[in-house]
């Protein structure tokens, strides 16, 4: 278990000003942004940096985080509360594929926790629950206010097979909650979510009412999951279309023929047209991800030459050289 030290992640001290944090974030964003970074673990580092920035740049959330961190060190030093492990908001059942990017999720948690604490304080001491413009507070000091719960946004990684056949995924959501004394702690709840068939990369899924609970009878927020595909050994997805390299022998490409190819729907027989070239594309209509319309599967031909490692093969290559004299470097003028 690991308590994420946001100050350490942003490489700033605990008393860093907002300006220090802003500068540190920008520096690290340039260093770790996966689109520009050469660092091997850039994506994970950027996620941490974003998460840390989301919380520390906001005074309200930062205070809440500091309170939680202080509670951890005060409450026995080394042992973090349950849930402060590496994947601490979501852990997907079913082996690794449930990894979720929960950056925004956390963001919302601290905000909500801060508001709750203020609401709690208002209820206890009659202090004014204010200072949050545009959030629909209603009610005078000391009265309960009605507020819709925060929406949460997170990413969920699934396999192409999951999209093809649909999958039910269990997600453990860990969130900051407040005990009777208004102290934050980590609670857990589990959602069982059926991911519909044919979802695409970037597709958003709404789980109504599964965000943070509302306050004073307000409606709960929604949970939004954005689908990401795990890298697949064979297929590359583009929308509902898939692409795959299909190795073929030189004679299959030259003479044409029928070969087998794996698809998400099982093995199919494919006609290779005579005279096919390296990198040539064949389209298998409707063999991509399901939907209306279903995607296609593109086979990119990879001509693979058998090694000339025995007498018979060497003789065959020699025969080919005699039978089909051609100069592949003619266009180079040599």
């Amino acid at each position: 278990m690991e308590f994420k030290d946001y100050y350490k992640i942003l490489e700033v001290s605990r008393n860093a000003t907002q300006d220090d944090i802003r500068k540190a974030y920008r520096k690290l964003a340039r260093k770790y942004h996966p689109d520009v970074s050469k660092e091997p673990d850039a994506e994970k580092r950027m996620r941490d940096v974003n998460e840390a920035n989301d919380v520390l740049r906001d005074a309200e959330k930062r205070a809440e985080y500091d309170a939680l961190a202080a509670g951890i060190s005060a409450g026995g030093g080394q042992v973090p509360p349950a849930g402060w492990d590496r994947d601490f908001e979501f852990s997907g059942a079913g082996g690794g594929a449930g990894d979720v990017d929960f950056n925004d999720f956390l963001n919302g948690m601290f905000k909500q926790a801060a508001r709750k604490r203020q609401g709690f304080a208002a209820g206890q001491g009659g202090a004014q629950a204010g200072g949050h413009p545009g959030q629909g507070f209603a009610g005078a000091p000391g009265q309960t206010f009605k507020m819709r719960g925060e929406d949460h946004h997170a990413e969920i990684e699934i396999s192409l097979e999951d999209s093809f056949s649909g999958v039910t995924r269990e997600l453990s959501l860990r969130s900051v909650q407040l005990d009777e004394q208004g102290r934050p702690y980590m609670g857990t709840r589990t959602l069982s979510v059926k991911i519909p068939t044919g979802v695409k990369e970037g597709q958003m899924i709404r789980l109504a009412g599964q965000g943070m609970p509302g306050e004073g009878g307000g409606e709960p927020g929604d949970l939004f999951l954005t689908v990401r595909f795990a890298a697949h050994a064979l297929y590359k997805a583009d929308g509902r279309d898939l692409s795959m390299h299909l190795p073929v022998a030189p004679w299959e490409a030259a003479l044409g023929g029928q070969v087998h190819a794996p698809t998400l729907q099982g093995v199919v027989q494919v006609n290779i047209p005579p005279g096919s070239k390296q990198g040539g594309k064949l389209r298998l209509r409707g063999k991509g991800l399901p939907g209306d319309p279903a995607g296609d599967l593109y086979l990119i031909l990879d001509i693979v030459w058998p090694p000339a490692d025995n007498e018979a093969t060497r003789a065959a290559y020699q025969q080919l050289a005699t039978a089909a004299p051609f100069n592949p470097r003619r266009h180079l003028g040599v």
Binding site: R189, T190, R206, Q210, F224
Partner: peptide, 27 residues
């Protein structure tokens, strides 16, 4: 044991899009 909540996933697509107010709130 933890209670498991079964929830219905709704695709955010042309049939169930996000409203202007919702998008503003998300951002």
């Amino acid at each position: 044991m933890n209670k498991v909540t079964i929830c219905t996933a709704q695709l955010v697509d042309h049939n169930a899009p996000v409203t202007l107010e919702e998008l503003a709130r998300f951002c």
